Amino acid sequence: MTEDEVLAEFRAADALLSGHFLLSSGRHSAHYLQCARVLMDADRASRLAVALAQKLSRDLRASIDLVVSPAMGGVIIGHEMGRALGKPAIFVERPTGTFELRRGFAIEAGAKVLLVEDVVTTGLSSREAIKTINEAGGEVIAACSLVDRSGGGVDLGVPFTGLIALNFPTYAPDEVPVELAATPAIKPGSRAKP
């Protein structure tokens, strides 16, 4: 799948938004990708997962035992990556603020794990999920996401692959341009506060 084809999937789902957004990383942006919208169509989610799986090397795909994703954003794409790779898929979640395994999920000692995210910006959530997986006995051997918003600067401690790299500028709270600051920030996504 080409970059234009991936963007066409986001546009078709009305998932590429413009405005003033406060990202979960705490940074501000004039653009937001609502991955939940692009993934709500099962056929589209499957196409994107297959395209992402194909970006991983054959050797890497063959060595994966388990797909793990962080809830909430990574659950659907993680599930679809499990399907695309023919591997089981589970997720970690934050019921009390830190990632943990729940719902009877367990990771076999030494299991080779692929971490799957919807969007990676700073990599903070990914690093937290990797720590939880490693503490549970797994070995995260690679990570991937639908969208890489890191500008190529994210270091997760393992090889990282994004289906598409989108480098819309993001701003620290004290760097927000005047024209963007003139409109109220919306906090979209799964961790938005009502």
Rank of each mutant, 00 (worst) to 15 (best):
K112M: 07
K112F: 03
K112L: 07
V113C: 12
V113S: 13
L114M: 10
L114C: 12
L114W: 14
L115V: 09
L115P: 06
L115W: 04
L115C: 05
L115G: 06
L115M: 15
E117D: 15
D118N: 11
D118R: 11
D118L: 08
D118F: 04
D118S: 10
D118T: 10
V119Q: 03
V119D: 04
V119H: 06
V119W: 07
V119S: 04
V120M: 06
V120D: 08
T121P: 03
T121I: 03
T121R: 01
T122G: 00
T122H: 00
T122N: 04
G123N: 05
G123Q: 00
G123F: 02
L124F: 09
L124D: 01
S125H: 01
S125W: 00
S125T: 14
S125D: 09
S125Q: 09
S126V: 05
S126I: 04
R127Q: 07
R127I: 01
R127C: 03
R127A: 05
R127W: 01
A129K: 08
A129E: 04
A129R: 07
I130S: 02
I130N: 00
I130V: 02
I130Y: 00
K131Q: 13
K131S: 10
K131H: 11
K131C: 05
K131L: 03
T132W: 00
T132Y: 05
I133N: 09
I133M: 10
N134D: 15
N134S: 14
N134E: 15
N134Q: 15
E135K: 15
E135V: 11
A136S: 15
G137D: 13
G137Y: 10
G137T: 03
G137F: 02
G138Y: 08
G138T: 05
E139F: 01
E139H: 14
E139W: 01
E139S: 12
V140P: 07
V140K: 11
V140M: 08
I141D: 04
I141H: 07
I141F: 04
A142P: 15
A142Q: 11
A142L: 14
A143F: 12
C144A: 15
C144G: 13
C144S: 11
S145I: 15
S145M: 11
S145H: 09
S145D: 13
L146A: 13
V147T: 15
D148K: 12
D148M: 10
D148Y: 11
D148S: 05
D148N: 11
R149I: 05
R149S: 09
R149F: 08
R149P: 02
S150F: 10
S150Y: 06
S150A: 08
S150D: 04
S150E: 07
S150L: 07
G151D: 00
G151W: 05
G152D: 07
G152L: 02
G153S: 08
G153Y: 00
G153T: 13
V154T: 11
V154Q: 00
V154L: 01
D155K: 11
D155Y: 01
L156N: 04
L156G: 01
G157T: 04
G157I: 02
G157S: 02
G157M: 03
G157V: 02
V158Q: 03
V158I: 02
P159D: 04
P159Y: 10
P159I: 08
F160W: 03
F160H: 14
F160A: 09
F160K: 13
T161P: 07
T161Y: 10
